[in-house]
């Protein structure tokens, strides 16, 4: 396997990670590495634990085995205070946006600044406006989260995620349930963030088209294992039936259309 990434350019390194929920093994001894300054996508069908992986990287969940290194620090052995310091350098964009519903757009973006810095209020105001301008929502600063559309909420959340100028951003299903215009805006924004701010981006998604369009490197997960990896080109031509089924969205293939069941005829005429 081509896993020889130089440790200086590697920002997240996952080594032999296993994680299970109840009796179900979500990850079974997987290793992957995410290079600095690139957009890495982690793909897979719903329920393969993509969000779980992000929570493991962020230190919100603990693995059964293996370790997660972020910027050379073992996330799960850090003390609480150190973990919090590390988290200030990682932004995470939740699927729902996770904006605080009792704060306005402006206050939501200002929240991490107010919590973690001692900047003056006028300084915070300028910073918030810069971040909101970057996502094109400077005019929406006085709206409340319930007045925003899904796409706008995600953009505000993105502004909030970059408020502290993190080294990396994790996007949890950024493209799900968006209309074509918001989708285009988000794709453009993620690309821009990565290029202009020099961020590292980790995208977790099952939207093949959009992800292939912007990712530099793709991991495809299936049943707790890495089913395939490579650049978008390599993935497209990968010699794996399963990956081809996933990427092209075939109804039948290694993943059967039918949920495992008894013989149809027998089942139907039994009684």
């Amino acid at each position: 396997m081509d896993n020889s990434v130089d440790s200086d350019t590697e920002i997240v390194s996952i080594q032999n990670l296993s994680f299970s929920r109840g009796d179900r093994k979500i990850f079974n001894d997987i290793s992957l590495s995410i290079p600095r300054g690139k957009i890495t996508a982690i793909m897979g069908p719903s329920g393969t634990g993509k969000t779980t992986l992000l929570k493991l990287i962020g230190g919100q969940l603990y693995p059964d085995q293996g370790k997660v290194l972020v910027d050379k620090q073992n996330v799960h052995q850090l003390k609480r205070a150190d973990l919090y310091t590390l988290r200030k350098r990682m932004g995470m964009l939740f699927q729902s946006g996770a904006l605080l519903t009792d704060l306005s757009v402006f206050d939501n973006v200002a929240l991490p600044l107010r919590e973690h810095t001692t900047l003056s209020e006028s300084m915070i105001r300028s910073l918030v406006l810069i971040k909101l301008q970057a996502v094109g929502l400077r005019g929406a600063r006085d709206l409340m989260p319930n007045e925003l559309s899904g796409g706008m909420a995600r953009r505000v959340a993105l502004a909030r995620a970059i408020a502290l100028d993190p080294m990396m951003i994790m996007y949890d299903e950024p493209f799900t349930g968006q209309d074509p215009i918001s989708l285009g805006t988000l794709v453009k924004l993620i690309k821009e963030m990565n290029n202009v701010l020099g961020l590292t981006s980790i995208i977790v998604s099952h939207d093949v088209e959009e992800t292939i369009g912007i990712a530099d490197y793709i991991y495809v997960l299936s049943e707790g294992k890495i089913a395939g990896q490579g650049t978008p080109e390599q993935i497209k031509n990968l010699d794996s039936e399963w990956v081809q089924q996933f990427m092209n969205g075939h109804a039948d293939g290694p993943v059967h259309f039918h949920y495992p069941a008894d013989n149809y005829h027998k089942d139907l005429f039994e009684n």
Partner: peptide, 22 residues
């Protein structure tokens, strides 16, 4: 409960803000 369901608490944790404090 709704803050938890809409990932607001989790989101705060990821912003290194302790939801217990805030």
């Amino acid at each position: 409960g709704l803050m938890k369901a809409t990932e607001q608490l989790s989101g705060m944790e990821m912003m290194a803000i302790d939801p217990l404090k805030r």
